[in-house]
Design a protein around this nucleic acid. Sequence first.
DNA 1: AACGCCGCCTGATCGC
DNA 2: TGCGATCAGGCGGCGT
Length: 279
Amino acid sequence: MPELPEVEVLARHLRPLLLGQTIRGVDIRRPQVLLPTDPAAFQRRLLGATFTGLQRRGKYLLFELRHARTPLTLLGHLGMTGRMYLAPRRDPLPKHTAVVLRLGARNFIYEDTRYFGRLTLDLASAEKLGPEPDQFTPAQFHAKLKTSRQAVKVKLLDQTLMAGVGNIYASEALFRAKISPRRAAGTVSGPRARTLLTAIRAVLQEAIDSGSTIPLNFAGKKTDGLFYFGRAATASEYYTERLNVYDRAGKPCNHCQFPIKRIVQAARSTFFCGQCQKD
DNA sequence: AACGCCGCCTGATCGC
DNA sequence: TGCGATCAGGCGGCGT
């Protein structure tokens, strides 16, 4: 699932490709991904607009455009299965294409198998986000954790606490910090909160540096037609190969060899080492 | 007001 | 074998 590193790598990939491009056509195949923006308003406001920039905020993409002299922002989210990429104008559209922005020689394609993502002119959801992981002091982070009795793993998924951490990197950061995912957030001490914040930043940065966990725009089967972003040249160099706990239930811990555990918290899988993460 | 729970979706996997 | 049931999961909305 795309989290902060995947979205950051995607933003870096798309930014130079989109800059200066003008939207000449807007095809809406799945209107629900625009919500709450009305499809007619979406088309009217985007047609003729030119891309002037692309930012990332948490797991969101902020497409900056100008229409005549009026600036506007388009908000993108990949949900679970979303992909956004440029493809030649004449390429057939994938089965689960949600929106196509026609840019001339190329199309900007947003496809999403489960349609959990968004491409909308409503910015409200991005405005609720907590700070980026690198814009937090350890004291602020500790203060936020203190107010919660939820398990710390569950709390890390709360985007209003901190933006960008999802299910994969929450487990990975807790392993690195040697903190049990079951510990109540409010009982994490000041020094442990500092350690956790450092671990979160390190895990996210390493994933960005290795080109994110997964290729984000592969078409069709996983083994076919891969188009990689970032520095890695092959799938084995992606961050997936560096994950210590995520999706490794039953496999030996890379540190102590004990089998990695899988538990369910708030209806989501958590992976951790019961030996290394006792507090 | 923090928190639990549901609905949204499809494809992979499971069970009989 | 084949097919229906179950599950996964980010996030908004809603109820407590």
